[in-house]
Design a protein around this nucleic acid. Sequence first.
RNA 1: GGGCCUGUAGCUCAACUGGUUAGAGCAGAGCGCUCAUAACGCUUUGGUUGGGGGUUCGAGUCCCUCCGGGCCUACCA
Length: 570
Amino acid sequence: MSRILITSAIPYINGIKHLGNLVGSQLPSDVYARYARARGHEVMHICATDEHGTPAELAAAKAGKPVAEYCAEMWAIQRDLAEGFGLAWDHFGRSSSQRNHALTQHFAGKLAEAGLIEEVTEKQVYSHTDGRFLPDRYIEGTCPNCGYDGARGDQCENCTKQLDPTDLINPRSAISGSTDLEVRETKHLYLRQSALAGDLEAWIDSKKDWPILTTSIARKWLKDGDGLQDRGITRDLDWGIPVKRGSEDWPGMEGKVFYVWFDAPIEYIAATAEWADANGLQDADWQRWWRTDKGAEEVKYVQFMGKDNVPFHTLSFPATIIGSGEPWKLVDYIKSFNYLNYQGGQFSTSKGRGVFMDQALEILSADYWRWWLLSNAPENNDAEFTWEVFQQGANKDLADVLGNFVSRITKFCRSKFGEAVPTGGTYGEAEEAVIADLQIRLATYEAHMESIEIRKAAAELRAIWVAGNEYLQSAAPWAVFKENPEQAAAITRFALNLAALYATLSEPFIPFASATLREALGSGAKWPESIAETANALPEGHPFTVPENLFTKITDEQREEWEERFAGTR
RNA sequence: GGGCCUGUAGCUCAACUGGUUAGAGCAGAGCGCUCAUAACGCUUUGGUUGGGGGUUCGAGUCCCUCCGGGCCUACCA
């Protein structure tokens, strides 16, 4: 048994996440964490909200609330939705926590000591009307290249030309529309990532088994143009972590905060400290996950994220860790995901396009979403959600293959033998063959889970479900019963034990249905050492109840209604 | 513009470092079963692997080129 630290990319605070966000990090990390726990590993599964930055301030302003209050409310909403989806992390933290304040300031101090922080005076656009500096993206105007009026300060969406805000003709604030702008000088801290480029490249090169999506993005940033660029790690904002050197003030940086991408990944560590605090534990209890001098050397650390997050996790955060000169844990494996598209376009938070977590739970229970999203996870390519494919997949896999298997065997048993595992008869060749087949499939399933091949694991799990229907069909206890009730009893007993096995094996993907099934059968959750031993896990005479149908089918009427309902914007 | 990924049956995807007649699931067709959520099982029809060229004894896999889709490009996060 080993110790596995698992983090999911932390969702931004400014709204409810859509299914694309969910399948890109939180859902696969949950499957992996549940699997690792089931196998008996000691697991720390961490997530949090990412709360700082301009969009959070704007969203709070739009909601008419102080930003701290807004974030607290949104954190609670996201926590509840995560619970609704069965996302079982050990702690769901907040990047605005005191723990993260202290750690972020600590890292900045260490980086400064190591000579990796540079102070740079630069010019930035300030909006008098908005009372704030504007990020390049929040400045709009006419593109000097193509004349498009909606060009942003970083790039023109129309002609794709890279721009500088001062290039724009008639620049205005994208927030208020105000043209009362001025260019001001402001001082910021830069992390000298360029000085660490060699270390980072060697480290990336040593990761032979990482997804190509992960390493190719990292290499692109390392090699492109002049190589890895230094990165500004401070901003002129109110909401954020005040810039300090450890616990000391930082002269000249008063009133500034750290950039959200500097403090967000540090929250993985801070959230683990928050976990210790919340559970009345000591610093040593979280440090054994994160400090290689305090036990974390033996920890396997796995991160889950969408591809847009990869540069920060392969380069910026490791630069912070390595640059600190302290023995912090570096990630061992980064699992990255492509995007899930919605009905031929993109999911979009800003445009309200697609299905959002709260809406998804309103219309169906979490397992439908978990199963379909995970068995179609965008691992090697962007994937596509359409209502028709979703309906087909969920109905076939969950209702017909798994749900109906449980239904047919429990109801058959009830009608012929009553609601207890029947006694009599013995297992023979047919059962041995199923055991042998499932033993191989189990090994394949475990191998896919361990290499975090989510789609393949799901396909193998489905094949394990199918084996139950195949067995029943060929063993035909309903026919055998007429001639040889003892033999029919053995067949039924074997099939009931398969159902119990399925409850255990399916738990990482569909925890709610798995729990329902375990409760109905009165079965345990212990991961099987061998299939043979599970064939009698439910002993003769063991009472059970027939569960409600685990999954009802999505009807054509429902599908059409939802297709209509979610066609526009929320 | 640059970089990366990608194009395989009607649909969604497989195919370890190039190696025998390119495989699954869904959808379609036929048969069977009647325990079950009109569910299940068996059989079966679908592919010049986007086009063209090249390397090789051998190419879905490597190279060139053309066509299509997607992402990233560092101050949204």
